[in-house]
Design a binder for these strands. Structure first.
Length: 257
DNA sequence: ATGGTAGAGCATCTA
């Protein structure tokens, strides 16, 4: 079972590229972030023609998350699980695909450590933890994936010194990611490549950052123990960041037995 | 310290 996360940075702007990429890579499950579409504008028919069932949680101009699946899609929960303070933004959707409970998330950026949006980011990560506690069990097949806007450690950052005091690398957000891992999840890319450095999933559009290798690994696929035991292969598709009108994120691919 | 680009939508906001 091939599972992918991809922040597409506007599905309207990216649909042709996403379609072409799906035909080539044939994931069983695709988790998308930043569709930037309202639900009634989501191109479900386009994806159905490619063999996918779809669940989209959108709001329009910003955010928006979706799960596409060729291996079944059921028990959809848009937003956080009932009982948890709902997010006014469309940033999380959960569904069962091929027996795996999949949560697709677009964690708030945070902007800067002194910004209200950073407080929101930390609260959002706390609520994601509460969502997992309410929705599922780490003893089951669980995947939590998406754009975390957190680089787990300094190997995931092109220049750690340059980012001291910035969001994406601060201790409080890394601690919250660790809380998710302690609950019973493994960073599947890091599990396969424990020593890999300079492998990124996002590069700023500006200043030639992609071609200069200035990126961050912030798009993660986290798996429960049983999912980790099934891990066969993982990679970041850097080629999808090249060419005409790419997203600023590359897809992260995981193959499970 | 700022700016560089891209996508939303049409003045800026978000990343």
């Amino acid at each position: 079972m091939r599972v992918v996360t991809w922040n597409v940075n506007s599905l309207r702007a990216r649909l042709e590229r996403v379609e072409e990429w799906l035909r080539e890579v044939q994931p069983d499950v695709l988790c998308m972030q930043e569709t930037k579409l309202a639900d009634d504008a989501f191109p479900a028919l386009t994806f159905e023609a490619l063999g996918y069932e779809c669940a989209h949680h959108g709001q329009g101009q910003w955010n928006g998350v979706a799960i596409l699946s060729k291996v079944g899609l059921s028990d959809v929960v848009a937003n956080f699980a009932p009982g948890i303070e709902p997010d006014p933004d469309a940033r999380v959707i959960t569904a069962t695909c091929g027996g795996v409970r999949v949560t697709c998330c677009y964690v708030p950026n945070g902007r800067s450590l002194d910004d209200d949006h950073y407080v929101y980011k930390l609260s959002w990560l706390d609520r994601l933890h509460a969502h997992l506690l309410a929705d599922t069990d780490p003893g089951a097949d669980v995947i939590v994936t998406g754009d975390f806007n957190i680089a787990p450690d300094d190997r995931d950052v092109y220049d750690p010194a340059k980012l001291v005091g910035a969001t994406h690398v601060s201790e409080p957000e890394r601690e919250r990611l660790q809380t998710l891992l302690d609950w019973g999840l493994v960073d599947l890319f890091r599990h396969q490549y424990p020593d890999a450095a300079s492998v990124y999933s996002w590069w700023d559009y500006r200043a030639g950052d992609f071609h200069q290798g200035r990126g961050l690994r912030i798009d993660l696929v986290l798996g429960s123990r049983s999912v980790t035991d099934r891990l066969e292969w993982s990679t970041v598709d850097r080629n999808a960041r090249k060419g005409q009108s790419p997203s600023d994120h590359a897809p992260v691919i995981v193959d499970l037995a």
